[in-house]
Amino acid sequence: MSSVDPGIFDAPLRDQFETFIDEHRAGLTGCLDGLTEEEARRSLVSSKTTLLGLVKHAAFVEKVWFDEGISCRSREEIGIPSTPDESFELTEEDTIASVRQAHLEACAASRAATAPLGLDDLILGNRRGPLPLRWVYLHVLRELAQHCGHAEILREQILDTRR
């Protein structure tokens, strides 16, 4: 991941949250850079986790927290899986380009959905009940950080097989 702009240290808290979230979003999609379709789909662990699946799951996360959470629409209405586990499942149509594009679009929609909100505004559509945007930002940042760590390890294993 790239280093954070030193100017962000003095920026408003919301800008800090959004900068870190965007860096982690980019880091996660960046895990697919230079990989073949087979490598991106390669399963190296017993779970459904693959690099392509992680990015697909990250698009699901965006839609859960920032579409379902803010719009209060159901997952069925949004067109996403009902469970996180299902969000890792890849179809024949899933490619690096299509999954990356879906993730970029989900992130853009998340930014648009949160733009009019303040950090203390409540997100009403989450299954946990009303949550302030600041808590949602922290949760999403934590989840993205975990998945970036998973992706770095999987990518390292894949690249090691090239030697």
Rank of each mutant, 00 (worst) to 15 (best):
A97Y: 01
C107R: 07
E105T: 03
A106Y: 09
G79L: 09
A102S: 10
D85M: 11
A102C: 05
F88W: 05
E86C: 04
A102P: 01
A97F: 00
E86R: 06
D85W: 01
E93T: 14
E93M: 13
D94K: 12
A106E: 02
E92M: 13
I96P: 02
T83L: 11
E86T: 02
G79E: 09
P81N: 02
V99H: 05
E76P: 04
E77G: 03
E77Q: 07
R100D: 04
L90H: 08
E76W: 07
E86M: 06
H103Y: 14
S82E: 15
A97Q: 05
P81M: 08
T91V: 06
C107S: 11
A102F: 04
H103Q: 11
C107N: 03
A106P: 04
H103D: 09
T91F: 11
R100L: 13
L104N: 08
D85K: 12
E92D: 15
E76I: 08
E89L: 14
A106S: 14
E86D: 07
I80D: 01
L90W: 11
E93H: 14
E77V: 00
T95N: 00
A106V: 06
E93G: 14
G79D: 10
S82I: 14
T95Y: 03
I96H: 00
D94R: 10
T91Y: 10
E93S: 15
T83A: 13
I96G: 01
S82D: 14
L90I: 03
A102V: 00
E77P: 00
G79N: 11
C107K: 02
R100C: 12
T83I: 12
S98A: 06
A97S: 07
E92F: 15
T83M: 07
S87K: 08
I78F: 06
A97I: 04
S87C: 03
E76K: 13
A97C: 04
H103M: 14
S82L: 15
E105P: 04
E86S: 10
R100V: 12
E92K: 14
L90S: 06
F88D: 03
H103R: 14
S82T: 15
A106D: 03
H103L: 14
P84Y: 10
V99T: 05
R100P: 02
I80S: 05
A106M: 07
E89R: 13
E93K: 15
I80H: 01
D94I: 09
E77I: 03
L104F: 04
S82A: 15
E93R: 15
T91S: 15
P81Q: 05
D85V: 13
D94T: 08
P84C: 09
C107T: 12
E76T: 11
T83W: 05
T83P: 09
I80W: 02
G79Q: 08
L104C: 12
V99E: 00
S98F: 06
V99L: 06
D94L: 06
E86F: 01
E92S: 15
C107I: 11
R100Q: 11
L104H: 10
E105G: 01
T83C: 09
D85F: 06
E92P: 10
P84Q: 12
T91M: 11
Q101I: 02
A97P: 02
L104I: 13
V99W: 07
E93F: 13
G79H: 08
E105R: 07
Q101P: 01
E86P: 03
S98E: 05
F88M: 00
I78Y: 01
D85L: 12
C107G: 06
S82Y: 04
I80A: 02
T95G: 05
T83S: 14
V99D: 00
I96E: 00
E86Q: 08
